[in-house]
């Protein structure tokens, strides 16, 4: 895993934390009712992930193997507290709507997973890039899920974007169609489970399509000359 292209494709597609590793399902299912919430949580996770990968990669040679997990968790917890305070200060409404899932980023398996599996074994630059790509992959899944649920549930896109980006963004809200009665299932966690399952199925379909399109390695036909004499 030395080249950046490989790291990028692992994080964004092949080993996507949301779709393939199925990590961080709790926030994934709980806060993706709208794009704004999904994007908020995704960016917060991305920041923590990059920060933790950098720090873990820096200290990896000085931490005894036996106590590495507590040390990693402390690093992550400190970073999450920073991000939480920042969001509290600069996007208070988003802070309210994300609620408990913001501090819960500490327990998100993606972060400790990448710290343990990648950052504790690789150089600083690679680790930072890996954190960024994994975070981006996770955010992408969150946003797609949030978009589909928001569209199905209330027929809008970017509703409540002003929570995330400030007052001007309230004009971003797109009313795709008028819904008299919101489709509650799409906004409830069971709907998130079903949508997630369909999303994973879609990824598998695309993968198998790509695989089918690749030229098959030509089988080398072994032709053997008869050397024994037939009597």
């Amino acid at each position: 895993m030395s080249n950046y292209r490989d790291i990028a494709s692992q994080g964004l597609w092949k080993n996507n934390p949301g779709l393939v590793q199925l990590l961080g399902l709790c926030p994934l299912l709980a806060v993706t009712a709208t794009i704004a919430n999904a994007l908020g949580l995704g960016v917060a996770t991305l920041l923590v992930l990059v920060g933790s990968n950098i720090l873990v990669s820096l200290v990896r040679d000085y931490v005894p193997k036996e106590i590495r997990i507590p040390v990693f968790v402390m690093i992550i917890a400190a970073l999450v507290t920073c991000v939480q305070l920042l969001i509290n200060a600069y996007a208070y409404n988003l802070y309210l709507s994300l609620g408990i899932f913001l501090p819960l980023i500490v327990t998100n398996c993606i972060i400790i997973g990448r710290a343990e599996a990648f950052a504790s074994r690789n150089t600083l630059a690679h680790s930072a890039f890996d954190g960024f790509m994994m975070g981006l992959g996770f955010t992408a899944v969150l946003v797609v899920l949030g978009a589909s649920r928001e569209l199905l549930g209330q027929g809008t896109l970017f509703d409540g974007a002003d929570l995330l980006l400030g007052e001007w963004a309230s004009s971003l809200t797109i009313q795709v169609w008028q819904v008299d009665t919101p489709f509650l299932l799409a906004m409830l966690p069971p709907g998130a489970f079903i949508a997630m399952g369909l999303l994973i199925a879609l990824k598998n379909v695309i993968d198998s399509k790509i695989k089918a399109r690749q030229p098959k390695p030509e089988s080398v036909a072994v032709t053997r000359a008869r050397i024994t004499k037939v009597s």
Binding site: T181, F183, L184, L185, A186, L188, P190
Partner: peptide, 10 residues
């Protein structure tokens, strides 16, 4: 059940 939890009024 899907319909009941999604559209309780109807």
């Amino acid at each position: 059940v899907l319909l009941l939890i999604s559209f309780p009024v109807q």
